[in-house]
Every structure is written in C-alpha cells, then in structure tokens.
C-alpha cells in the first residue's frame, strides 16, 4: 500500500499520461502539469527533417529532467519492430531502457497481438530493457508477462481511445490479486469515475491519453483524473462497507418522538 515504485524509482503520482492527440504542445504541457503526473509516454517516429529549424519539439515542453519519459512501441505489429523501436528509443534517451511495449493487431479495435507481445517481451527482457507491457485483461497472460520479467503489467480496461472504461472488473481484480509487480490499467478510460474504479479495484496506477486530450476541457479533465486516482486509492485504503440487499438505517431507533 506504499508508493508506486517502477524500475527502482518512487512516484508520488499514480497517474501516467500519454502525450498524443492534444491541440498543441502548450496544451500538452498544461495538461501534464495539471494532472500531477510524473511519467509520460511518447511515440518514436521519423524526424521531420525539412521542418522550420526554429520549431520546437515535444521534449522541449516535457523535459526528461522533470518527467520519466516512457517511449512506446505504438505502430509496431511485430515483435521485431517493437524491439527495434525500443533500441532506437534507448539511444534517443541517452541509454535509458524503461519502455512501454505495445504490439497491436491490425484490427479496428487495436486489440493487442499477444503472441507478438510475448515474443517481444522475452527479447527485450534479455536485452536488459525494463518493460511496462500493454496487454489484454487475460489473467493468465498477465502472469506470464510478469514471469517473463516485465517490470509492470498494464491490462486494458477497454479498447484504446474508446472511453468505455473497465469492461471486466473481475479479470482486472484477478490480475491484481495474482500479481507481484505493479498493475496499471492502460486504455479505455473515459472519465474520472473509470480511473477511480480502477484504483478501487486495487490497481497500482492508471495510464490514459484520449480521456484527457480529447475532453472538452483537457486541463480540467487532467485535474479531475488527478483527483480520481487519489480518491480511488484512498477509498480502497479506507475499506468500503459491504453491499447489502436490505436497507440499514443511519439514524438510531432509540428516542424516537414519533410512534412506539
């Protein structure tokens, strides 16, 4: 029940944000700051070589000195491509090897390709990468990824960008109960209550992007998500009441002035 520790670093915030889909870098920066998060994901892409030389880049706004930068393997459909992307990312970030592994299928749902994910995870762990792995909510696969040596397992709540929230709370809970590594719900969060529910289930953190970036007011949503993650975890630690079928009065029966 202590702090979130990933790759030997302690984090006060249990919220991790993606940096995609924002209007511009200023909005990205403002949302990240408002959320209180300390780790952000980035994508790895060809540089736009012909661009205006004075134009800024994302890491000018979200400094690696202040945030843990977590490169993702978004756009990779094979283990080979994912591993190649991670090697490039490590060079780009001066040798840092904490990565978010995601190997998707080409379906419209962006569902993870678990076969390639497992191959990539095995290869990356052998190359001393610290792997935060995006996966399905299958408890068997989650445990297998932990056993391979992943630093952290990140089951989806629902499809990336769908905003549906956690579809299968029972699976998420089972993953948490069986885990000896941090479990961070990644994908599908739509609003604050989704993040809160994830934390109440016992998740160690929540990763989201679209829920904030595409909200009507991203900065306000970033604040809402910050509070939701804190509230959910506090509620879990506080120990909720059990659910009952019958009512149970909150006011005592003794001393009633009405009736006997």
């Amino acid at each position: 029940m202590g702090k979130l520790i990933i790759n030997n670093k302690t984090y006060n915030s249990r919220l991790i944000l993606g940096t995609g889909k924002y209007k511009d870098f200023y909005e990205t920066q403002s949302a990240i700051e408002s959320s209180g998060c300390e780790m952000v994901t980035v994508a790895i892409r060809r540089m736009n070589i012909g661009q205006d030389k004075a134009s800024k880049n994302l890491l000018d706004f979200i400094s690696p000195d202040k945030y843990t930068i977590l490169p993702n393997t978004a756009g990779c459909y094979t283990a080979k491509d994912a591993v190649r992307t991670c090697e490039i990312a490590a060079e780009l970030l001066d040798g840092k090897k904490l990565v978010k592994l995601e190997v998707l299928s080409k379906s419209e749902t962006l569902y993870p390709n678990i076969i390639e994910t497992i191959k990539a995870a095995e290869s990356l762990v052998k190359k001393d990468f610290k792997v935060m792995v995006y996966t399905t909510d299958d408890p068997i696969i989650a445990k297998e990824l932990e056993n391979i040596g992943c630093e952290c397992v990140m089951p989806l709540g629902s499809a990336i960008g769908s905003g549906i929230g956690i579809i299968n709370k029972y699976n998420i809970r089972e993953i948490i109960e069986n885990a000896n590594v941090p479990i961070i719900v990644d994908a599908g969060v739509g609003t604050a209550s989704d993040a809160c529910i994830a934390m109440e289930l016992g998740c160690d953190g929540v990763l989201m992007n679209t829920a904030i970036a595409k909200a009507n007011n991203p900065i306000l949503m970033a604040v809402a998500m910050k509070n939701a993650v804190i509230s959910g975890r506090d509620a879990l630690k506080a120990g909720r009441i059990t659910k009952k079928e019958m009512g149970s009065p909150s006011s005592p029966a003794d001393g009633l002035i009405t009736g006997d």
């Binding site: 940096t19 889909k21 994302l58 780009l92 990336i160």
Partner: peptide, 30 residues
C-alpha cells in the same frame, strides 16, 4: 540499415552508397 549508430560514433561513421538512414525523434503518443 536497421542498426542504431550511437552518438559516440557519429563523428567517425562514414556513410556508404545505398545506406538506408533513419533520423528519429520522440513525438506525442499514448
């Protein structure tokens, strides 16, 4: 050619005819 060339080698690595070069950076992503 799909091999990362570390920064320490940038001053000495000589590019050859037909080389496939990628210059890559970090951008916004989830």
């Amino acid at each position: 050619n799909e091999q990362v060339i570390p920064k320490s080698d940038h001053g000495s690595y000589i590019i050859k005819n037909g080389d496939k070069i990628e210059i890559i950076t970090a951008i916004g992503g989830g």
